[in-house]
Computed example of a mutant assay.
Amino acid sequence: MSPRLAAALATCGAWAIDPRPAGEPRVLRPLPGGESNESWLLAWGDTRLVLRLDGLDPATPGLDRAEEVTLQGAAAAVGLAPQPRFGGADFLVSDYVGDDPAEDGAGPDPADAVARARLLRAIHALQVPARRLAPAAYLAACEARAGAVPPALPALARVHCAALAAPGDAPVLCHNDLTAANCLRHRGRLLAIDWEYAALGSRWLDLARAAGDSAAAVAAYLQRTPTRAERSALAAARALLPYLDALWYALHGRAGTVDWPAVTRALETADD
Rank of each mutant, 00 (worst) to 15 (best):
G45R: 00
G45T: 02
D46Y: 01
T47W: 07
T47M: 13
R48V: 00
R48A: 02
L49E: 05
L49F: 14
V50Y: 02
V50C: 12
R52C: 07
R52V: 08
R52W: 05
L53K: 05
D54T: 12
G55C: 14
G55E: 09
G55N: 12
L56H: 06
L56F: 04
D57Q: 12
D57M: 06
A59M: 06
P61S: 08
P61H: 05
G62D: 02
R65H: 11
R65I: 09
E67L: 11
E67R: 10
E67H: 09
E68N: 11
E68F: 07
E68R: 11
V69I: 15
T70W: 04
T70M: 09
L71E: 07
L71R: 09
L71P: 04
Q72C: 14
Q72G: 12
G73D: 01
A74S: 14
A74T: 11
A75H: 01
A76V: 12
A76M: 08
A77C: 09
G79I: 10
L80D: 04
A81L: 10
P82N: 04
P82V: 00
P84M: 03
R85N: 08
R85H: 15
F86G: 02
G87E: 09
G87K: 05
G88W: 05
G88S: 13
A89W: 04
D90V: 05
F91L: 10
L92Q: 12
L92I: 06
L92F: 14
L92N: 06
V93S: 06
S94E: 08
Y96F: 15
V97I: 08
V97K: 01
V97E: 05
G98S: 15
D100Y: 07
P101H: 01
A102T: 02
E103G: 05
D104T: 12
D104V: 09
A106R: 12
A106W: 05
G107C: 03
P108Q: 10
P108C: 11
P110L: 02
P110E: 06
A111M: 12
A111G: 15
D112Q: 08
D112Y: 05
D112W: 04
A113Y: 01
A115K: 00
A115F: 01
L119E: 07
L119G: 09
L120V: 03
R121Q: 13
A122H: 01
A122D: 15
A122K: 00
A122G: 04
I123G: 01
H124L: 08
A125F: 10
L126M: 14
Q127M: 10
Q127G: 13
Q127C: 13
V128H: 11
P129F: 02
P129N: 11
A130G: 10
A130F: 13
A130P: 08
R131N: 03
R131M: 03
R131H: 08
R132V: 14
L133A: 10
L133K: 01
L133P: 00
L133Q: 04
A134P: 05
A134L: 14
A134M: 06
P135C: 07
A136E: 15
Y138E: 14
Y138N: 15
A140W: 02
A141Q: 15
C142S: 10
E143S: 10
A144I: 02
G147V: 05
A148L: 13
A148T: 10
A148R: 14
A148K: 11
A148P: 09
P150H: 09
P150R: 02
P154D: 02
P154G: 06
A155K: 07
A155F: 01
A155V: 13
L156K: 07
L156V: 01
A157G: 06
A157Q: 13
A157M: 11
